[in-house]
């Protein structure tokens, strides 16, 4: 029997779709890193909360899926901003700003991750819940060779690309986006330009958490929504961010797609039970040959 190119193509298509979701979570991690110089370890929990917010909106409140998506993004953005204001910012008040507060910030991020998981247990319990979304109005995509791509994957690809495009437009072509980039590069100078730096930091955090929430709501209908889901996503998104070059926004997307494709191919051709290992295998390979990541430069690339 010859090599089945159709199934290879299918694995790649599914890999890319799941990969862009890793990409948008990684985008948030990179955004926070380049903007605030902190590695946000509670980002997986933002993704999880986003998924639950979407679930509650779609099932309990009964709004249509797209509204649930937007609602979850807004709620999670607010949650992220509140967490940053109440917890992380206190660490920077001690002086030195985000860069100097580094280690405390990492520990605070870990603590926040544990705390948020437990809050979620308390509210939603430990059981995995299926996310039923009515997506009948989205067409299934058919590729030559009997490859059918389900609605939720089509939707995921469309929305992820739209979010990336919107973020790109915001950062490159709006005045506030310019201010965000200025804050990312140097907070003192941004202050001297008259930019309200604390407000921009809130905005960066809100954006990043909103992106994570979108990923959660998009993944929801494919898998199920569960309190522990954030941990693995954080790891994969980190792998994606590092593969692409930490702090680089295009790199985050590229890294996400590579991780998605790599793990799908690994699961298909090596062993499906070790699916979650392949992302890290890719990470190790990239770190061996190009430690700054694929699109990273020696110094970190700023948004």
């Amino acid at each position: 029997m010859g090599f089945d190119y159709n199934s290879l193509l299918a694995f790649i298509i599914f890999g890319v779709t799941i990969g862009v979701v890793y990409g948008i979570v990684a985008l948030g991690i990179s955004l926070i890193y380049s903007g605030l110089d902190i590695v946000h370890f509670a980002h997986g929990e933002m993704y999880m909360f986003g998924a639950f917010f979407g679930l509650v909106l779609a099932h309990n409140v009964g709004v249509p899926y797209p509204i649930a998506l937007i609602g979850a993004m807004v709620l999670t953005a607010l949650l992220g901003m509140a967490v940053e204001r109440v917890f992380y910012r206190r660490l920077t008040r001690a002086g030195g700003g985000y860069t100097v507060a580094g280690m405390g910030m990492i520990i605070c991020g870990f603590g926040m991750s544990v705390a948020l998981v437990n809050v979620a247990y308390f509210i939603w319990g430990a059981e995995a819940e299926p996310f039923r979304a009515n997506l009948d109005y989205i067409p299934r995509l058919s590729f030559p060779g009997d490859i059918e791509v389900p609605e939720s994957y089509v939707l995921t690809a469309i929305i992820s690309v739209a979010l990336m495009a919107a973020l790109h437009y915001f950062l490159r072509h709006t005045k506030t986006g310019l201010a965000v980039r200025a804050v990312a590069h140097n907070k003192d100078i941004a202050y001297l330009m008259g930019i309200n730096v604390p407000l921009m930091i809130s905005l960066i955090f809100g954006l990043a958490c909103g992106l994570a929430a979108a990923a959660g709501v998009l993944i929801g209908p494919m898998q199920s929504v569960q309190v522990e889901m954030g941990y693995l996503m954080l790891m994969k998104a980190f792998a994606a961010a590092v593969v692409g070059g930490f702090g680089s926004l295009p790199g985050a997307i590229l890294g996400g797609i590579m991780v998605g494709v790599f793990e799908n191919l690994g699961a298909a051709y090596i062993s499906p039970s070790h699916k979650d290992i392949y992302a890290f295998l890719l990470l190790i390979l990239v770190l061996m040959f190009k430690p700054s990541g694929l699109l990273g430069v020696e110094a970190k690339v700023k948004a």
């Binding site: 005045k175 310019l178 200025a182 590069h185 140097n186 100078i189 330009m193």
Partner: peptide, 19 residues
């Protein structure tokens, strides 16, 4: 040395008028 190196000259200038 504290211009924004990753921004264009014009972006730097527009940023000056941020307020």
């Amino acid at each position: 040395k504290e211009a924004y190196p990753a921004m264009t000259v014009e972006e730097n200038l527009v940023l000056g008028a941020y307020t």
